[in-house]
């Protein structure tokens, strides 16, 4: 009795986001993302984002910077519709994200998270997760494009190397690169990236930077940016504070402003010396 109660309570939990009854499949998109006066709160009266307006043209690279809790992660979560906005409108190629099926939306989004999670299985299986019907050749092409091929072929079992639970046999950097290959294979129009600077050695870092460039090439990208190179090369940098965009522009424009962005980066990089 007690056990079945526990089970049923779990089964009866409301599924938080479901497709709208009249939801349509999102047709192949170009990748135009528009935030029109969007506000969002996880809990009532604790606004996380207020009046965000942001426009990304197909292929543009948007860097989101700001302190922890400024709302960067929330913005990217809204694009993937992990949560629904409370106010305003969020459209992709003119479609309101709430009016399209989740499967069709996410299949055109590539999401690369900070902590690259690999499933138990081979490296090839993990890359294939991005496109289940991919051939071995496609997998190798994707791995080569992100610079993963070299270290994979050096492993005794190559692409058939088993990555243990949580991919313990690989370094964090290698796992990250594999997760890039996975995203590249999925070939999404919109790329969402939570950039991590975690424990990656400098050589791997260089590979990662090149891989990121390959990955973002020709895709609309939203990046929670930590790398200088990512930020400098962005078409637009949005500086967030307390759920609002307080500055926006290119690297040069923002430096010239001598505002929050200037402060953030003088602090971060001056410390290096």
């Amino acid at each position: 009795m007690a056990s079945s109660e526990r089970l049923f309570r779990l089964l009866d939990m409301p599924q938080d986001l479901t497709d709208a009854p009249e939801a349509v499949d999102l047709p192949p998109i170009a990748g135009r993302v528009i935030f029109d006066d969007v506000s969002f709160a996880y809990k009532d009266d604790e606004p996380v984002l207020s009046h965000i307006s942001l426009r990304a043209e197909p292929g543009q690279r948007i860097a989101l910077v700001g302190e922890t809790g400024a709302g960067k992660s929330t913005i990217i979560r809204l694009i993937a519709r992990f949560f629904d906005i409370n106010e305003g409108a969020l459209t992709i190629d003119g479609y309101d994200v709430r009016q399209v099926t989740q499967a069709s939306l996410r299949s055109q989004l590539g999401i690369v998270l900070q902590d690259p999670f690999l499933f138990a299985g081979t490296i090839a299986d993990n890359i294939r997760y991005g496109k289940l019907e991919a051939t071995q050749a496609e997998i190798v092409v994707a791995a080569k494009a992100v610079g993963a091929h070299d270290f994979i072929s050096k492993l005794p079992d190559g692409y058939q190397t088993d990555v243990g639970e949580n991919g313990v046999n690989l370094s964090v950097g290698q796992r990250q690169i594999i997760s890039f290959a996975r995203a590249l294979l999925a070939d999404p129009r919109i790329l969402i990236l939570d950039e991590a600077t975690s424990s990656v050695d400098t050589t791997t870092e260089k590979i990662i930077q090149q891989a990121l460039d390959t990955l973002m090439e020709g895709r609309t990208s939203f990046v929670i940016a930590h790398r200088l190179s990512t930020i400098v090369n962005a078409d637009m940098i949005a500086v967030l504070a307390n759920g609002r965009i307080i500055e926006r522009g290119t690297h040069e424009e923002l430096l010239a402003k001598r505002g929050r962005y200037f402060n953030l980066y003088t602090m971060q990089w001056a410390q290096a010396n």
Partner: peptide
């Protein structure tokens, strides 16, 4: 249990790639 544990730990990746059916 292994399968369940894995897909729960990696739930963010599962959702990111819309691989729930898989």
């Amino acid at each position: 249990s292994e399968l369940m544990q894995e897909s729960l730990t990696g739930i963010r990746v599962v959702k990111a790639f819309a691989r729930e059916p898989h």
